[in-house]
Protein backbone atom coordinates (compact mmCIF):
# COMPACT_ATOMS: atom_id res chain seq x y z
CA UNK A 1 0.00 0.00 0.00
CA UNK A 2 1.27 3.41 -0.87
CA UNK A 3 1.89 5.44 2.20
CA UNK A 4 2.76 8.63 0.44
CA UNK A 5 0.62 10.94 2.47
CA UNK A 6 -1.29 13.85 1.17
CA UNK A 7 -2.09 16.50 3.66
CA UNK A 8 -4.31 19.46 3.81
CA UNK A 9 -4.11 22.73 5.69
CA UNK A 10 -0.50 21.80 6.23
CA UNK A 11 0.01 21.51 2.48
CA UNK A 12 2.64 24.19 2.25
CA UNK A 13 4.81 22.57 -0.35
CA UNK A 14 8.17 21.05 0.35
CA UNK A 15 8.34 21.73 4.05
CA UNK A 16 5.08 19.96 4.69
CA UNK A 17 6.25 17.07 2.56
CA UNK A 18 9.26 16.81 4.83
CA UNK A 19 6.92 16.72 7.79
CA UNK A 20 5.07 13.88 6.10
CA UNK A 21 8.08 11.92 4.97
CA UNK A 22 8.79 10.42 8.36
CA UNK A 23 5.23 9.20 8.84
CA UNK A 24 6.03 6.05 6.90
CA UNK A 25 5.74 3.55 9.68
CA UNK A 26 3.53 0.54 9.29
CA UNK A 27 2.12 -0.32 12.66
CA UNK A 28 3.37 -3.92 12.51
CA UNK A 29 6.91 -2.70 12.31
CA UNK A 30 6.63 -0.39 15.27
CA UNK A 31 8.35 -2.61 17.77
CA UNK A 32 11.28 -3.31 15.48
CA UNK A 33 11.46 0.38 14.74
CA UNK A 34 11.50 1.27 18.39
CA UNK A 35 14.40 -1.09 18.98
CA UNK A 36 16.25 0.52 16.09
CA UNK A 37 15.37 3.97 17.37
CA UNK A 38 16.63 3.07 20.83
CA UNK A 39 20.08 2.23 19.55
CA UNK A 40 20.00 5.43 17.51
CA UNK A 41 19.27 7.39 20.68
CA UNK A 42 22.33 6.11 22.51
CA UNK A 43 25.83 7.41 21.76
CA UNK A 44 28.94 6.31 23.69
CA UNK A 45 26.78 5.17 26.59
CA UNK A 46 24.84 8.43 26.72
CA UNK A 47 21.16 7.59 26.57
CA UNK A 48 18.38 9.91 25.51
CA UNK A 49 15.24 10.15 27.65
CA UNK A 50 13.67 8.07 24.86
CA UNK A 51 15.14 5.05 26.68
CA UNK A 52 13.37 6.00 29.88
CA UNK A 53 9.89 6.30 28.29
CA UNK A 54 7.07 3.78 27.84
CA UNK A 55 6.66 2.09 24.43
CA UNK A 56 3.37 3.99 23.93
CA UNK A 57 5.16 7.30 24.43
CA UNK A 58 7.95 6.28 22.05
CA UNK A 59 5.38 5.23 19.46
CA UNK A 60 3.77 8.66 19.76
CA UNK A 61 7.14 10.31 19.05
CA UNK A 62 8.14 8.02 16.18
CA UNK A 63 5.13 8.62 13.94
CA UNK A 64 4.76 12.19 12.70
CA UNK A 65 1.01 11.77 12.49
CA UNK A 66 0.75 10.53 16.07
CA UNK A 67 3.20 13.11 17.41
CA UNK A 68 1.20 16.13 18.59
CA UNK A 69 4.40 18.19 18.65
CA UNK A 70 4.18 18.24 14.86
CA UNK A 71 1.26 20.67 15.22
CA UNK A 72 3.80 23.21 16.48
CA UNK A 73 6.22 22.39 13.66
CA UNK A 74 3.38 23.01 11.23
CA UNK A 75 2.66 26.37 12.82
CA UNK A 76 6.37 27.19 12.63
CA UNK A 77 6.27 26.43 8.88
CA UNK A 78 3.41 28.93 8.52
CA UNK A 79 5.23 31.57 10.59
CA UNK A 80 8.43 31.16 8.56
CA UNK A 81 6.99 33.05 5.59
CA UNK A 82 4.73 35.42 7.53
CA UNK A 83 5.76 39.06 7.14
CA UNK A 84 5.90 40.91 10.44
CA UNK A 85 7.40 44.19 11.71
CA UNK A 86 8.31 47.59 10.27
CA UNK A 87 10.94 46.20 7.89
CA UNK A 88 8.25 44.25 6.02
CA UNK A 89 10.22 41.02 6.22
CA UNK A 90 9.57 37.40 7.12
CA UNK A 91 12.16 34.81 8.12
CA UNK A 92 12.08 33.65 4.50
CA UNK A 93 13.07 37.12 3.23
CA UNK A 94 16.63 36.58 4.50
CA UNK A 95 16.90 32.81 5.03
CA UNK A 96 15.08 31.71 1.87
CA UNK A 97 11.86 29.81 1.27
CA UNK A 98 13.45 26.42 1.77
CA UNK A 99 14.45 26.42 5.43
CA UNK A 100 15.41 22.76 5.06
CA UNK A 101 18.51 23.87 3.17
CA UNK A 102 19.39 27.09 4.95
CA UNK A 103 18.62 26.13 8.55
CA UNK A 104 19.65 22.48 8.73
CA UNK A 105 22.19 22.01 11.49
CA UNK A 106 21.63 25.40 13.10
CA UNK A 107 19.91 23.93 16.15
CA UNK A 108 22.83 21.64 16.97
CA UNK A 109 25.32 24.43 17.73
CA UNK A 110 23.25 26.63 20.07
CA UNK A 111 23.68 28.21 22.62
CA UNK A 112 26.44 30.17 20.91
CA UNK A 113 28.43 33.29 21.68
CA UNK A 114 26.94 36.53 20.34
CA UNK A 115 30.16 38.29 19.40
CA UNK A 116 28.54 41.75 19.45
CA UNK A 117 27.23 41.55 23.00
CA UNK A 118 29.78 39.09 24.31
CA UNK A 119 26.89 37.06 25.76
CA UNK A 120 25.84 33.49 25.32
CA UNK A 121 22.66 33.25 23.23
CA UNK A 122 20.23 30.34 22.76
CA UNK A 123 17.89 29.62 19.85
CA UNK A 124 14.94 31.49 21.33
CA UNK A 125 17.07 34.56 21.93
CA UNK A 126 18.58 34.31 18.45
CA UNK A 127 15.09 34.16 16.89
CA UNK A 128 14.00 37.22 18.84
CA UNK A 129 17.19 39.11 17.96
CA UNK A 130 16.38 38.48 14.30
CA UNK A 131 12.88 39.79 14.86
CA UNK A 132 14.03 42.96 16.61
CA UNK A 133 17.16 43.81 14.59
CA UNK A 134 16.28 42.62 11.11
CA UNK A 135 12.49 42.51 10.96
CA UNK A 136 11.92 45.52 13.25
CA UNK A 137 9.23 43.41 14.89
CA UNK A 138 8.39 42.87 18.54
CA UNK A 139 10.16 39.98 20.21
CA UNK A 140 7.93 37.01 20.93
CA UNK A 141 7.21 36.30 24.58
CA UNK A 142 8.91 33.34 26.20
CA UNK A 143 6.73 30.21 26.04
CA UNK A 144 4.31 31.94 23.64
CA UNK A 145 2.79 29.80 20.90
CA UNK A 146 4.80 31.70 18.29
CA UNK A 147 8.22 31.36 19.95
CA UNK A 148 7.62 27.71 20.80
CA UNK A 149 6.46 26.99 17.24
CA UNK A 150 9.46 28.67 15.61
CA UNK A 151 11.96 27.10 18.04
CA UNK A 152 10.37 23.68 17.52
CA UNK A 153 10.47 24.15 13.75
CA UNK A 154 14.16 25.14 13.84
CA UNK A 155 14.87 22.08 16.01
CA UNK A 156 12.88 19.84 13.69
CA UNK A 157 14.98 21.03 10.73
CA UNK A 158 18.04 19.46 12.40
CA UNK A 159 16.30 16.24 13.31
CA UNK A 160 18.69 13.30 13.21
CA UNK A 161 21.85 15.44 13.26
CA UNK A 162 24.21 15.03 16.25
CA UNK A 163 24.22 17.74 18.91
CA UNK A 164 27.48 19.62 18.63
CA UNK A 165 27.77 22.70 20.87
CA UNK A 166 31.14 24.42 21.18
CA UNK A 167 32.35 24.60 24.78
CA UNK A 168 35.95 25.73 24.51
CA UNK A 169 37.71 29.00 23.72
CA UNK A 170 35.65 32.11 24.34
CA UNK A 171 32.66 30.00 25.39
CA UNK A 172 34.54 28.15 28.12
CA UNK A 173 33.66 30.54 30.99
CA UNK A 174 29.94 30.16 30.18
CA UNK A 175 30.31 26.40 30.03
CA UNK A 176 32.03 26.35 33.43
CA UNK A 177 29.24 28.49 34.92
CA UNK A 178 26.61 26.18 33.43
CA UNK A 179 28.43 23.16 34.84
CA UNK A 180 28.49 24.83 38.26
CA UNK A 181 24.71 25.33 38.04
CA UNK A 182 24.31 21.62 37.31
CA UNK A 183 26.26 20.67 40.42
CA UNK A 184 24.89 23.41 42.70
CA UNK A 185 22.64 22.26 45.55
CA UNK A 186 19.47 24.31 45.78
CA UNK A 187 16.06 24.54 47.42
CA UNK A 188 14.62 23.03 50.57
CA UNK A 189 15.53 19.55 49.35
CA UNK A 190 19.09 20.77 48.88
CA UNK A 191 19.48 18.88 45.64
CA UNK A 192 21.47 19.58 42.50
CA UNK A 193 20.61 18.48 38.95
CA UNK A 194 23.34 15.86 39.22
CA UNK A 195 21.78 14.09 42.22
CA UNK A 196 18.97 12.78 40.05
CA UNK A 197 20.49 12.76 36.59
CA UNK A 198 24.13 11.72 37.15
CA UNK A 199 23.98 9.74 40.40
CA UNK A 200 20.61 8.00 40.08
CA UNK A 201 19.35 7.54 36.52
CA UNK A 202 17.38 4.33 36.10
CA UNK A 203 16.05 4.53 39.65
CA UNK A 204 12.57 5.61 40.56
CA UNK A 205 11.21 8.57 42.45
CA UNK A 206 7.79 7.21 43.25
CA UNK A 207 6.51 6.03 39.87
CA UNK A 208 8.83 8.22 37.84
CA UNK A 209 11.90 6.71 36.27
CA UNK A 210 14.85 9.09 36.52
CA UNK A 211 16.56 9.73 33.18
CA UNK A 212 20.11 10.83 32.52
CA UNK A 213 18.77 14.31 31.83
CA UNK A 214 20.06 14.24 28.23
CA UNK A 215 17.51 16.86 27.28
CA UNK A 216 19.47 19.05 24.88
CA UNK A 217 18.53 17.12 21.74
CA UNK A 218 14.87 16.64 22.73
CA UNK A 219 13.49 20.06 23.74
CA UNK A 220 11.21 21.78 22.85
CA UNK A 221 9.16 18.65 23.37
CA UNK A 222 5.56 17.59 23.80
CA UNK A 223 5.04 16.66 27.42
CA UNK A 224 1.99 14.53 28.16
CA UNK A 225 1.64 16.23 31.50
CA UNK A 226 1.68 19.72 29.95
CA UNK A 227 -0.53 18.58 27.06
CA UNK A 228 1.54 20.87 24.86
CA UNK A 229 5.02 21.72 23.64
CA UNK A 230 7.29 23.34 26.22
CA UNK A 231 10.80 24.79 26.28
CA UNK A 232 13.89 23.46 28.03
CA UNK A 233 13.80 26.45 30.38
CA UNK A 234 10.22 25.59 31.38
CA UNK A 235 11.51 22.13 32.32
CA UNK A 236 14.42 23.67 34.28
CA UNK A 237 11.89 25.75 36.20
CA UNK A 238 9.76 22.68 36.92
CA UNK A 239 12.80 20.75 38.21
CA UNK A 240 13.84 23.70 40.38
CA UNK A 241 10.35 24.03 41.86
CA UNK A 242 10.27 20.32 42.63
CA UNK A 243 13.33 20.58 44.82
CA UNK A 244 11.59 23.58 46.41
CA UNK A 245 14.00 26.13 44.97
CA UNK A 246 13.12 29.50 43.52
CA UNK A 247 13.40 29.11 39.75
CA UNK A 248 15.08 31.66 37.50
CA UNK A 249 13.11 33.46 34.80
CA UNK A 250 13.05 31.74 31.41
CA UNK A 251 15.93 33.10 29.37
CA UNK A 252 17.94 34.05 32.48
CA UNK A 253 21.73 33.95 32.06
CA UNK A 254 21.94 31.12 34.61
CA UNK A 255 19.58 29.00 32.49
CA UNK A 256 21.30 29.79 29.20
CA UNK A 257 24.63 28.72 30.76
CA UNK A 258 22.96 25.60 32.17
CA UNK A 259 21.44 24.95 28.74
CA UNK A 260 24.94 24.94 27.22
CA UNK A 261 26.08 22.37 29.78
CA UNK A 262 22.95 20.23 29.26
CA UNK A 263 23.40 20.41 25.48
CA UNK A 264 27.02 19.35 25.88
CA UNK A 265 25.77 16.40 27.93
CA UNK A 266 23.68 15.55 24.83
CA UNK A 267 26.72 15.78 22.49
CA UNK A 268 26.52 13.32 19.64
CA UNK A 269 22.91 12.42 20.32
CA UNK A 270 20.64 12.97 17.30
CA UNK A 271 18.15 15.83 17.52
CA UNK A 272 14.67 14.47 18.33
CA UNK A 273 12.64 17.70 18.22
CA UNK A 274 9.73 17.43 18.73
CA UNK A 275 10.31 14.58 21.19
CA UNK A 276 7.43 13.21 23.31
CA UNK A 277 7.89 12.55 27.01
CA UNK A 278 5.69 11.91 30.01
Amino acid sequence: MTRKGNKSMGAMGGLAALAGAAGLLLSGLLIANQAAAKSKYEVDGRKSGYHYSNPETNEMQDDDFLNPGMLWVQRGIALWSKVDGAAGKSCASCHGDDARKTMRGVFTVYPKLNKKTGKLENIEQRINRCRVENMKAKPWKWESGELLSMTTFIGFLSRGLPMNVKVDGEVKPFFEKGKAEYFKRRGQLDMACKHCHIDNPGKRIRADLLSEGRAGQAFPLYRLKWQKIGSLHRRFRGCNKQVRAKPYKPGAEEYVNLELYVKWRSRGLPVEVPAVRR
Binding site: M1, T2, R3, K4, G5, N6, K7, S8, M9, G10, M12, G20, G23, F65, M70, L71, Q74, R75, I77, A78
Partner: peptide, 19 residues
Protein backbone atom coordinates in the same frame (compact mmCIF):
# COMPACT_ATOMS: atom_id res chain seq x y z
CA UNK B 1 -4.22 28.66 10.57
CA UNK B 2 -2.40 25.50 10.30
CA UNK B 3 -4.34 23.86 13.07
CA UNK B 4 -4.96 20.36 11.74
CA UNK B 5 -2.88 17.52 10.35
CA UNK B 6 -4.36 14.72 8.31
CA UNK B 7 -2.69 11.63 6.88
CA UNK B 8 -4.48 9.97 3.98
CA UNK B 9 -2.69 7.67 1.52
CA UNK B 10 -2.37 9.42 -1.85
CA UNK B 11 -3.18 6.25 -3.76
CA UNK B 12 -5.16 3.08 -3.10
CA UNK B 13 -6.77 0.15 -4.92
CA UNK B 14 -10.56 -0.10 -5.28
CA UNK B 15 -12.03 -1.99 -2.33
CA UNK B 16 -9.01 -1.31 -0.13
CA UNK B 17 -9.53 -0.30 3.49
CA UNK B 18 -7.25 2.66 4.22
CA UNK B 19 -6.11 4.04 7.56
Amino acid sequence: MAKARVKVPGKAKAGEVIL
